[in-house]
Structures are given as structure tokens and as C-alpha cells.
Design a protein around this nucleic acid. Structure first.
Lengths: 181, 181
DNA sequence: CCCGGATGAGACAAAGATGTCTCACTAGAG
DNA sequence: CTCTAGTGAGACATCTTTGTCTCATCCGGG
């Protein structure tokens, strides 16, 4: 009878990605449980958001692992990265927005780890001569987040086709990063 | 003794750009007026947000006018566009985020006008042969929003220098759009 | 100088969300 | 079958924000 904590988080993520201001009651209904049970699993809204953050970081880390960022050409790694991140793009956009609210207090160290891994990829591309060096790896990482977020929203709003997600982002990003540009 | 409505809006924009969940009381304090007076000027929070939206659209329209999007090379127009938009980048990011909450109901027609003007610029660049044609103007417009938003946040968080704002965005965007990429 | 309109401060109720608690019910283990 | 832990439903108080209202005060125009 034990509720599936993972299931609750995924339902909450799906709902909050669409409507970030959903109430605990709405989250509970979306997960198919009562508000009381939701509260038994997560002490409060903050705890739920933190748990979602942990889940998102976990999924991102897994995506980065699957993308094998330190193998082969950096450009190919970017391709794999965007491909692996696509399934969690909407969720990521939600977390990034939500994270901006946590200004100052307890910034989860996990974000720095993700940032570092992606930044390292861009730096590797620069050092290998694949990428131009007049755009900092930190900015490229931020830009990637922005493009992924824009892509996720554009797809969700139906302004662009979902099948073009990877192509659009990778082509635009790499085109600007490629040294031959 | 009449309060400066424009001043209130600018103060509200500056505050809400940093903390989107600020209360009416905080907004009033930031504007240097009482909550009662704030309420006399704007019927409620919704009215305030709508007024901010109108202000933002007005500023964006002015920025687009100043950028003379239909003059000269499309790439140069993009340069001018980013330069003109920079001062309102943070504000724009706030409005775009806030706008996503207004799902469905009264979408302000002004956004479509802005979208159309920028989309037309990219289309012009494609038709003149300056820009590659395998990335849709609609996506490029969305991507520009994403990059501007990322740039604004990165500058605000101190991750990149403010003086690099234009260069970073234009170089990354154009590099991906330039046909020779 | 006097008056009117606007403001600031604060009280007040209403609404929404949250967190806690109780109680009946049910599924599953033993 | 019985017992128990976990669940759903809902009541309840609390907190925050919002929107309204009143009243004293102040500033400027006539």
C-alpha cells in the first residue's frame, strides 16, 4: 500500500512544468493521492520542490553520463548532450526558473556540478581547436540552458515541431561555436 | 501632488525583475509610496502586471524602431537589435516568464506584433542569402529571446561581464545563422 | 489664509494555501 | 481470520496576501 514516491515526483514534475504555481492540492490530485498522503511523503511545499530539484539533478547527471561528454569530437558530444537532455528539457526549464527564486539561501551544490561538466565540454572543444575561443565556456553553458528552455517552450506551445528540437538547438549552437563559422 | 505613474511602473519593473514574487506591499515600498496609493493607481496585482506588460511592449517597440530592422544588412540589424534590447533585457525576461502563467486567457496582441517584427528580420536575412534557411524564423526568434534572457541572468548573477552582453549574444546567434557557418 | 484633493498609515474582512489533526476504511501480512 | 500500518476525506487553525475602507495629515491653488 506504500505510495510510490518516485511516481509522485514524476507527476508533480509533469504538472509543475506546465503550471509552476500549482497548489499542493492540485499536485496531489495529479499524482492520484490525497493531500494528506502527499504531506506525509513531503513535509511541505519546499520539501517537495527540493525533492524535485534532487530528481532533476539526478536525471541531468544521468543524461550527462549517457552523453559521454568526454569522448570523441566535442561537437558530437554536444549532439549527444542535447539528445539526452531533450526528455527532461521542460522539467529543466521549470527547475531553472524555480531556482532563481531561491536567491541566496541554500543553492544546491549539484547545479555547480552540472555546470562544470558542461563547461568542461566547451572548454575541451576550444582546446582541441573545434570551437572558437572568443566566447567563454561559462557563457556557452548559460546559452545552452537558454536555448534548451526556449526550445522546450516553443515545442510545448506548438510553435515548432517536437521532431526538430535537437536539430534546431544543435545547429544554432554549434554554428556559433564552430571555429570555421 | 499626483504620483508619477510612470515612476511606479519603473520601480515595480526593477523590483519584480529581481524577485518576481514580490508582494504589493514590497512594490509600494520600492516605489516609495503607500500600498493604498499603489492600489489607487492600479486596481490590483493583475492590473499592475498588465500595465507592466504594456510598458514593456512599448519599450520593446521603441527598441525595435530604434534598431531600424529593415535597413541595411540583416546581420547589422541584428547587432542593432541586441544593442537596443539590452537595457530592457532583464525586464523582458521577467515579462516572458510571467507571460507563461497567463496560459490561454487574454494573451496581449502586442507580443505577436513584436514576434512578427523580429521574425520578419530573420526572414529577410534568409531571403537575401545572408542567413541559412534550414532554421525557421520562428525558432530563431524564440532562440533570441532565450539567449537574451540567459544573458541578462548571467550578467545579473555576475557570471559574465555586462560589457560582453552584446558581443556574446550576437556572436553566438549570428554564428549559427550565418550561411557560411 | 482657507479649502479641496491626494496621500500615508493602519484597521479590517475575505480569500487562498498551507500544515496539522482526527477518524473511518482497506489492503496485506501473519 | 485478525491485526496493523497506511490511506483518503475532511475539519480546523494559521498565515500570507489581497482588496477595501476610514481618518488624520499635508500640500498647493485660489
Amino acid at each position: 500500500m506504500a505510495v510510490d514516491r518516485e511516481h509522485i515526483l514524476r507527476a508533480a514534475a509533469a504538472l509543475l512544468t506546465r503550471k509552476a504555481t500549482s497548489t499542493m492540492d492540485e499536485v496531489a490530485k495529479a499524482a492520484g493521492i490525497s493531500r494528506a498522503t502527499l504531506h506525509r511523503q513531503f513535509a511541505g511545499r519546499d520539501a517537495l520542490i527540493r525533492a524535485l530539484e534532487a530528481l532533476g539533478l539526478e536525471q541531468l547527471d544521468a543524461a550527462l553520463d549517457a552523453a559521454r561528454l568526454d569522448e570523441g569530437a566535442a561537437a558530437d558530444a554536444v549532439h549527444r548532450l542535447v539528445a539526452e537532455v531533450e526528455p527532461v528539457a521542460g522539467f529543466l526549464a521549470f527547475l531553472v526558473t524555480e531556482n532563481q527564486l531561491f536567491e541566496g539561501d541554500g543553492m544546491n551544490e549539484g547545479w555547480n556540478r552540472i555546470d562544470d561538466r558542461i563547461t568542461a565540454l566547451f572548454r575541451r572543444g576550444q582546446e582541441s581547436g573545434e570551437f572558437r575561443i572568443d566566447l567563454s565556456p561559462v557563457w556557452l553553458t548559460e546559452a545552452l540552458y537558454g536555448l534548451v528552455g526556449s526550445g522546450a517552450w516553443a515545442v510545448q506551445d506548438g510553435r515548432v515541431a517536437a521532431k526538430d528540437f535537437q536539430f534546431m538547438i544543435v545547429e544554432l549552437l554549434l554554428g556559433g561555436v564552430r571555429r570555421s563559422a
